[in-house]
């Protein structure tokens, strides 16, 4: 039992990752895809933070000159701080592109189908002009 509960964080990581990944692949709505992507990334953040945690460890700050306290590993937290910034940038850029897509196409659903339909249309047009 402790095997499962002790790894609680990791189970959540797996669950979040799968949910996010599913949304990225399966949802036709572009905003939902981006949300899925964010969940997916958040799962990875959780993975990193979990591995930095030391049992009974405190925040890695030297308090009252006490050097002997057990600290959690600060490095993963620093890394994830960076990764969060990266994730937010990606999300922002993604949303900006979605806005542009909405402006250009008037929809954000099933955009792949529309775009490839456009391509077929183009080919048909050129086929007619050939004749």
């Amino acid at each position: 039992m402790s095997e499962i509960l002790g790894l609680f964080n990791y189970w959540v990581f797996v669950l979040l990752m799968v949910i996010g990944f599913y949304a990225v692949i399966a949802k036709p709505n572009l905003i939902k895809k981006l949300l899925g992507l964010s969940i997916f990334q958040a799962a990875v953040f959780l993975l990193f933070i979990s591995m930095g945690k030391v049992d009974g460890g405190t925040a890695p700050i030297i308090q009252n000159g006490n050097w002997d306290a057990v600290f959690s590993n600060p490095l993963p937290q620093v890394l994830i701080l960076t990764a969060i910034v990266v994730g937010i940038s990606t999300l922002a850029l993604g949303l900006a592109i979605v806005v542009r897509i909405k402006e250009a196409y008037g929809t954000i659903e099933e955009i792949d189908a529309i775009a490839s339909g456009e391509a077929t249309q183009l080919q048909q047009d050129s086929g007619e002009s050939k004749q």
């Binding site: 992507l37 990606t90 592109i97 542009r100 897509i101 250009a104 955009i111 792949d112």
Partner: peptide, 9 residues
């Protein structure tokens, strides 16, 4: 735009 969205994901 659609191409780049796919690329981004």
């Amino acid at each position: 735009l659609t191409a780049v969205f796919k690329y981004l994901i």
